[in-house]
């Protein structure tokens, strides 16, 4: 359950950005979570709801955008979305691959209430 520690980091970033904009409240938060980020989206939501009490986001909602694991084969230049974690090109069998997306753990955007 490292999700709680990630949510603590999220609140640090959120509060810093919200203060820069002189916001009063954080009403909505969108995270990008890659398939290979090593976190469980449902647990992030649970951790968010525990953590938000007595913060600027006490009434805020969290939306999670799941990002697929996408790889590029450097040999045959095919782009593949992987449902498993097998790092072998499905077209030519090469293991010379580059991960294009799927490891993200980003705060994408927030909705703020400003005076």
């Amino acid at each position: 359950m490292h999700e709680l520690s990630l949510i603590a980091n999220l609140f640090e970033i959120m509060e810093e950005k919200a203060a820069e904009k002189n916001a009063k409240k954080i009403t909505h938060v969108v995270l990008q979570v890659g398939k290979l980020s090593g976190v469980v989206p449902d647990l992030l939501i649970t951790a968010f709801d525990i953590y938000k009490k007595d913060t600027m986001a006490s009434e805020g909602e969290l939306t999670i955008k799941e990002v697929p694991l996408k790889i590029l084969c450097r040999d045959c230049k095919t782009e593949v979305v992987k449902d498993d974690f097998v790092f072998i090109c499905t077209k030519c069998g090469s293991t010379n691959l580059k991960t294009l997306s799927g490891t993200e753990l980003y705060l994408e955007k927030m909705e703020l209430e400003i005076d």
């Binding site: 980003y106 955007k109 400003i114």
Partner: peptide, 18 residues
């Protein structure tokens, strides 16, 4: 009624500080 809502793009890594 005076409150405005504003969407702010951030795109910051939660593991950035680590």
């Amino acid at each position: 009624e005076k409150m405005k809502t504003k969407e702010v793009m951030v795109l910051e890594d939660l593991l950035g500080s680590n």
